[in-house]
């Protein structure tokens, strides 16, 4: 650090150079996806104006029209933002519950082989359950409101949390375990000073995956549980049935943004928490 400061005082060029290099790298990383975006927009226009005849154009209205009607009509904006808030709330509550439950389960599994052997098959089963098959039952038991939606999110995001937490908890170095054994560490100490810290990078990986799934769960759950404040899923349903394609596309776009935001948010949390010392998350920080 001091080295580069001294270099900067004598001759500013190395630092300038590195800033230029960094910009160049960012540009190189950022440019291709942006180009793809423009290609995508171009294709969209092509389909709208050259593939679809005028009377069928409502199937795919041009991007500028979507933006104008979806983002600049006050009542629509309010409605979509409300739906966004509802879905976000449901997704985060489901994720939170899944984390509390999943992490506790993984912690129990990491403490004794017999617990692991008893629970592991069920953890795997929780992933293989076709969630749609459960939906009617969830509605039957928990009503068709927020609780039912939260439970869908919970089920759908549980597996990656359990598996990643467990992998992490079991990843602590064997010789470090030996040191804890040699110094007669209690189970509590071993868990809090060795296993849980060792698990953190994996836990964040699991959380990030689970968060994405939870957003999907919130939107899917909405389709089936019609009651309560409408989330993004219900709006999609409503706009589609009324052929309001501009609003429909905007909602799809917002749902994508929510997914990205959640993925990025947990990525950020991971980098902040373990990026200093974990090679994987440190690398994540560069991109």
């Amino acid at each position: 650090m001091t080295g580069s400061m001294e270099a900067g005082m004598i001759d500013s060029s190395p630092e300038e150079l590195s800033r230029y290099a960094r910009l160049k790298t960012q540009f190189r990383i950022g440019l291709p996806p942006v180009l793809v975006f423009f290609v995508f927009l171009g294709l969209w226009y092509v389909v709208t104006y050259f593939v679809l005849s005028a009377d069928r154009r409502w199937l795919l209205p041009p991007p500028h029209q979507v933006v104008a009607e979806g983002f600049f009509v006050g009542s629509t904006v309010t409605e979509i933002l409300n739906g966004l808030w509802q879905s976000t709330k449901v997704a985060l509550m489901g994720l939170g519950l899944a984390f509390l439950f999943g992490f506790s389960m993984a912690l129990a599994m990491s403490q004794a082989k017999w617990i692991e052997r008893s629970l592991y098959p069920w953890a795997v089963a929780s992933q293989t359950v076709p969630i749609l098959a459960l939906v009617p039952m969830i509605g039957f038991w928990f009503g068709f409101g927020v609780l039912a939606r939260v439970i869908v999110c919970f089920i759908i995001s549980l597996f990656p949390i359990i598996i990643n937490s467990l992998t992490g908890l079991l990843s602590a170095d064997r010789e470090l375990h030996s040191l804890f054994t040699l110094h007669n560490a209690s189970r509590w100490r071993r868990a809090t000073r060795l296993q849980i810290p060792a698990a953190l990078p994996h836990i964040f990986t699991g959380l990030r995956t689970a968060a994405g799934l939870s957003v999907i769960g919130a939107i899917v759950g909405d389709f089936f549980f019609g009651r309560g404040e409408p989330g993004l899923g219900l709006l999609l349903d409503k706009y589609a049935s009324r052929l309001q394609s501009e609003e429909l596309f905007t909602t799809v776009f917002v749902a994508c943004l929510l997914g990205i935001a959640v993925f990025w948010g947990f990525g950020y949390l991971g980098r902040r928490t373990v990026g200093d010392w974990d090679p994987y998350w440190a690398e994540e920080g560069l991109t």
């Binding site: 170095d173 010789e175 470090l176 030996s178 110094h183 100490r189 810290p197 060792a198 010392w277 974990d278």
Partner: peptide
Amino acid sequence: NVGYVFQDPTLMPWRTVRKNGELLGELE
């Protein structure tokens, strides 16, 4: 009072060098 040094350094990656140094003191 036995010290054990393994083939791998087996430091805790989440701890700074000083905190790694303190580990056995903590356990004792």
